[in-house]
């Protein structure tokens, strides 16, 4: 669905992503992992056309991303940013409703209202729908932003650290929703810090270090003590517990 070719991205004059070839495929949940400053968020922002590439190409379904009209792209691709700041005083339901803007331009149809209601329910926000964003907690706000991204009903879903501020039960819920979207044919890319979560939920893991792909492949290949210790420059243990991989820092 999304494909990059020798992609380089610069931020404020410094190149932070170098020469990346990567494919985010439909029907698959791709996890981006790596240490702080590895360029994960920048790469994701470039895939979501928020930052223009310095060199190389990004193609969505074979078309250069810059050539796709903006409203068109917004119906096919949605991105959740880290630390998104929402200035106006909006209710949770209003914010999620904005996710339908690319489809109906600000006038919600009955179908749009159904989608908004489903997305609110998916993220356990139904009871908070009428609350103002500035009166809910950080985790609830984060879930509202995720729900808005989901309400865009995109073919490609890009989530930058969606698990920030979330408690255990909502971590599970968000990953389950992301998986469900992948299983119904969407291309999902998620930046994750928790390697155990990545190993459990992802079909494909891309590890970035210093702006380059350090390792990539299915979780069994990437989540190993050797690769992860080298990736983070710190000793990490990988244990098999009940057939699932668990990554420990000691």
């Amino acid at each position: 669905m999304i494909e990059t070719q020798s992609l380089c991205v610069s931020l404020g004059g410094a190149q932070v992503v170098h020469d990346i070839d990567l494919t985010v495929e439909r029907g698959r949940l791709t996890a981006l992992v790596g240490p702080n400053g590895a360029g994960k968020s920048t790469l994701l922002a470039a895939l979501g056309r928020l930052v223009p590439p310095a060199a190389g190409a990004i193609r969505v379904d074979g078309t250069e991303i810059g050539r796709i009209p903006s409203p068109d792209l917004a119906r096919r691709l949605a991105i959740l940013r880290q630390n998104a700041v929402i200035a106006p005083r909006l209710s949770v339901a209003d914010l999620v409703g904005f996710g339908r803007y690319p489809h109906s331009g600000g006038r919600l149809t009955a179908q749009d209202h159904d989608i908004v209601r489903d997305c609110l329910a998916d993220l356990d926000l139904t009871d908070l729908a009428g609350r103002y964003l500035d009166t809910v907690s950080g985790g609830q706000r984060q879930r509202a932003l995720i729900a808005m991204t989901l309400a865009q009903t995109p073919d490609a879903l890009l989530l930058d650290e969606p698990l920030n501020n979330l408690d255990l039960s909502h971590v599970r819920r968000v990953m389950a929703v992301a998986r469900a979207r992948a299983e119904t044919g969407a291309a999902v890319a998620v930046v994750l810090h928790d390697l155990t979560v990545a190993a459990r939920h992802a079909d494909h893991i891309v590890a970035l270090k210093s702006g380059r792909v350090f390792a990539s492949g299915p979780p069994e290949e990437v989540v190993t003590p050797e690769i992860l210790s080298a990736l983070y420059d710190t000793p990490l243990e990988v244990h098999d517990i009940a057939g699932k991989r668990v990554v420990l820092t000691v």
Binding site: P71, A78, A84, F98
Partner: peptide, 20 residues
Amino acid sequence: SARLDVIALGRETAIGLGVD
């Protein structure tokens, strides 16, 4: 006016929602 509503959400969110 609907586009202004989206612009009020901030630059990145507005671009994400397909507003140039």
